[in-house]
Nucleic acid binder design. Structure first.
Lengths: 170, 170
DNA sequence: CAGTATCCTCGCAGATACTG
DNA sequence: CAGTATCTGCGAGGATACTG
């Protein structure tokens, strides 16, 4: 009956997605990375309703992803800036952008190009690497129960590994 | 009145998020990476309603992220497997998982640990690098209009760069 | 300009039952 | 077991007006 809450999942992805896995939040974060910080910035750029924007900014602030600071004493304008926790979402944002560049804007070319501010180099495509720096293909990523695993998680992992053939669509 | 469509944005992030930026899709993709492929797999693991699952699987299939193949001739069971386009979402999934591991499951430790199947090494934290392989801090990521930029995009980029101070929350 | 307050509508998603 | 069909509701999110 009640909408299922992803907080019930003992899974980093589910819990993370529950925080930022909605369309507006990710767009707000993108703009925050681009350097925008004020209510009206987000509002004008995204065409988002003030009500919704307020809710999103509060949620992100409560989650510790943004921090709200007054621009100046005695005035009710604020900056919503990325915290360290929020800045740590950069790889996620970039990987989404790169996926879209590749698979959606393939012909036209990407509308926005990202660069290293200091060197001017373009960004490299994000890759999944292991601790030795080796790039991993999806099929070579495997998993096991970690320290925070519940009994259910452990059981799920076992059954998964039993049925895991390691191949993907041919 | 109508819900604003993210397809209107000339932005890789918006368009991508419009495809996969909902909670169920990302969880389905996670399970697909884990090797699950059948309707009942997703249904049992996620506790998702068949109606919703059908809709999500169709959407992902239409988007070319999953591909639907019959298990055997004459039987109506199917595998939903990642296509190359879908497999390319691995960095996004991993970055979300790693963020959750770090910022949500900090004390308990992550419920699931990812490894290189071949070497057994743990995965490295995903980093944003430039083409020279240099790791980039968020503040050093800048942007400019790309080949697919519309006039509006160009204008937005200009005004952004003018106001961009390069600092984040102190 | 930065929000808050109301109202309303549409669509996602849950429940349940059904078919091949 | 793999879905489809219907019905229903709740709640996100849009529109608009208002306050400090």
């Amino acid at each position: 009956m009640t909408r299922t809450s992803l907080q019930d999942f003992n899974c980093s992805l589910a819990r993370t997605v529950d925080l930022i896995g909605d369309k507006w939040s990710l767009l707000i974060l993108r703009d925050a990375f681009y350097g925008y910080s004020q209510f009206s910035d987000f509002r004008n750029r995204l065409g988002i309703t003030p009500t919704v924007l307020t809710a999103r900014l509060q949620a992100l602030t409560n989650a510790g992803i943004l921090q709200r600071d007054q621009v100046r004493e005695g005035i009710d304008r604020h900056h919503y800036r990325l915290t360290a926790k929020g800045r740590d979402l950069l790889p996620t944002i970039i990987s989404l952008v790169q996926w879209g560049d590749k698979w959606i804007f393939e012909e036209e070319g990407p509308p926005i190009v990202l660069r290293n501010r200091q060197t001017g180099n373009a960004l490299a495509r994000m890759e999944v690497c292991d601790s030795a720096g080796k790039v991993l293909a999806p099929r070579n990523v495997t998993f096991e129960a970690g320290p925070g695993a519940t009994a259910e998680t452990r059981a799920a992992v076992r059954s998964a590994r039993a049925s895991d053939t390691g191949d993907t669509a041919k």
